[in-house]
């Protein structure tokens, strides 16, 4: 436990030591919030039962899904490839540190960063765009977000094993994730897409993350907001990612 804590502390320290990367991690979703509200407007919506919320509230889950994928999947896959190419993973692998602690610390760090990011987006949204914060759905929102980060971290680690070197990392990572972002109800509502495309989208984890968050952040949601089937699918992908990562992960640079 103390080793995990130590590793976590140092991973966290390293993150903040690179302010350019840290700041843009948090600015990224705010830029999206600004763009969405500017393009699609921020009118008030009222339900027949008399409840109302600003449009910005409905952009939040999409932006968070995008940020979670960005923070965990994209950045972890790239970071680990760079650490592997640079020989740092190899150096760590030569010590008695159980490798699972090294990985767990990275994932914990991303959960920590993800929660800070969500807090910043919600605070900013609340102040500037009058976004409604989840109340009865708060547990569902938190758990869905954390599960998303863990799942996409596992998938990021799994993807690392398919990336031959860090020069190829951005191309491979973007090619693997950007198309999914477009067919998973994040930017464009899927009912405008052909059925077969929606079907393909629904097979992949981004879709399930997006739907878990849409319900969990729905201001009109009466129930607890847990999308159990989507969360289960997300967990399934997390397990697949973990298995692939454990089986294929490489600590020494690929030639």
């Amino acid at each position: 436990m103390s080793r995990l804590w130590m590793q976590f502390k140092f991973d966290n320290k390293s993150f903040w030591r690179n302010p350019a990367a840290a700041v843009f991690t948090f600015v990224f979703p705010l830029v999206f919030l600004f763009v969405f509200t500017t393009i699609f407007g921020d009118d008030e919506i009222t339900t027949p039962s008399g409840k109302s919320a600003d449009m910005a509230t409905f952009y939040i889950p999409s932006i968070l899904a995008l940020s979670i994928v960005n923070v965990s999947y994209t950045s972890l896959a790239m970071q680990m490839t760079i650490l592997r190419d640079g020989g740092f993973l190899k150096q760590v692998y030569g010590t008695p540190l159980p490798v699972r602690l090294f990985i767990m610390s990275k994932v914990l760090h991303l959960v920590f960063i993800g929660l800070i990011l969500i807090a910043i987006v919600l605070t900013f949204g609340r102040i500037i765009y009058d976004v409604q914060l989840p109340t009865n759905t708060l547990p569902a929102a938190t758990i869905s977000a954390i599960l998303g980060i863990v799942t996409f971290s596992a998938l990021g680690l799994a993807m690392t094993s398919f990336i031959p070197n860090s020069d190829a990392a951005p191309a491979i990572v973007n090619a693997s994730i950007l198309p999914l972002l477009f067919i998973s109800d994040i930017f464009i509502p899927l009912h405008e897409a052909p059925d077969w495309l929606s079907f393909i989208g629904s097979l992949f984890p981004v879709y399930h993350l997006s739907h878990s968050l849409i319900t969990a952040f729905d201001p009109f949601q009466e129930a607890s907001g847990f999308e159990w089937s989507h969360l289960a699918a997300l967990t399934g992908w997390g397990i697949i990612g973990s298995i692939v990562a454990v089986r294929r992960f490489s600590w020494i640079p690929r030639i």
Binding site: M6, K13, T95
Partner: peptide, 30 residues
């Protein structure tokens, strides 16, 4: 692993941590 020290041909550590922090971190592994 507890009893073996390794200097690889390729330089490994290249972090945003300080020299002292890096040694503290690796020390915590043993």
């Amino acid at each position: 692993r507890e009893r073996v020290g390794i200097v690889l041909q390729q330089t490994g550590a290249n972090t945003y941590l300080t020299v002292r922090e890096t040694l503290d971190l690796f020390g915590s592994y043993y």
